[in-house]
Design a binder for these strands. Structure first.
Lengths: 202, 202
DNA sequence: ACCGTTAGTTTACACCGTAAACCCGTCAGG
DNA sequence: CCTGACGGGTTTACGGTGTAAACTAACGGT
């Protein structure tokens, strides 16, 4: 099959999803494409551009509906959930989305669409921006927290997490709580906190 | 000067602060230490351990006072500010702190200390954990947002951010707002939102 | 039939993490 | 004092990385 920007970026994303971000190298990607690594440089000037291409197709998965007259709380919740779902669908790519330079066109478009939503819901421009910062920060942060604590929740059929014998006493206290923590619920907890906080904004 | 774990980790952090995380390589670090790169392996088994060492001294900068009877809102705000200040003091190291595996001893200790604070303030264990997740997520997320949008705020003596001529229309609308955004204020905005949300928790 | 463009390959270079062998100064025991 | 072990640092080496440059093979238009 012929090469193309789209096919390269998609196989790259598949590779990252499968083997992690570290495993993405030009040569390995070339191998997955059935081609020599250097061929990719005909379509992307360097690896950074390739990563930007991945971000682009990731953000394309995120459909942001045009402004309507549904209450902003609802919109806010739905967007947060959609973004969260996107991140959890591609956990290995989270670092890519965590540091999104807004100068990237794909990012700018997504941010702009959300801003439009918030503006339509009655936020003035500065608060809309602050709200956007708050929510993306929260969603990304929580996704990172979640993958960071994932080992404690891994299926272990009843056995507790195998802590090293010299583990910090704080950690042995923390571990069981982490193990039984329902991430979805924790996310909802923080989301409620933020929405309630926004409702009472002055 | 003789080598030691502490000196190596500190020079590594200095190197990261100066030249960025990407620039940290065993050989360059060796050069900064006046020694051959391989010498570091006498003190750290591999690069991951070295990074963990950096995290350790970073978190050591964060002094978490023992529980007292000051209102939790105050404690919460102070801890958030302290963590934020730490992140901004070492912007290049943020990715290191963004994905903190709690199994790391230094991380566990810090998390445990904050949990103790929250517990003392009357949170039950599950909500304390959820609150910890919420706040660290928010603080880390906002720091990442901040460095990501930093170019728009860079000192440009009056000139607006030089957007490429084919920039996304959303971006050209966004850019001036970003430029005049006061990050400290935005942070405070979100922090208020979260504190108010926590106050009205059921 | 030729020529230019395009798509992909080959080769090369500097750098990376790290395993293994080595080299040398210090110190302990005979 | 000699010797031998050892710890800290060096050298060399290997496989992997991103990417610049030169090369090659196919194809479309004149």
């Amino acid at each position: 099959m012929a090469l193309s920007r789209a096919r390269i970026a998609e196989t790259a994303l598949a590779l990252v999803d499968r083997d992690g971000l570290e495993a993405l190298s030009m040569r390995k990607l070339g191998a997955d494409l059935g081609v020599e690594g250097m061929a990719i440089y005909r379509y992307f000037p360097n690896k950074a551009a390739l990563l930007a291409g991945i971000v682009e197709i990731l953000l394309a998965e995120l459909v942001i509906p045009p402004p309507s007259d549904v209450p902003w709380q609802r919109v806010f919740r739905e967007l947060s959930h959609a973004y969260r779902a996107l991140l959890l669908r591609h956990p290995h790519a989270i670092p890519l989305l965590a540091t999104l330079p807004l100068s990237d066109p794909a990012t700018a478009r997504a941010a702009g669409a959300v801003m439009a939503q918030l503006r339509a819901a009655g936020f003035d421009a500065p608060s809309a921006l602050k709200t956007l910062a708050t929510i993306t920060s929260y969603v990304v942060g929580v996704a990172q927290w979640e993958v960071g604590t994932a080992p404690f929740r891994a299926e272990r059929n009843g056995e507790p997490f195998p802590l090293p014998p010299d583990a910090d006493p704080y950690l042995v206290e923390l571990a069981p709580q982490l193990a039984e923590d329902d991430c979805e619920e924790t996310f909802e907890f923080g989301l409620d906190v933020i929405v309630r906080g926004l409702e009472t904004r002055s």
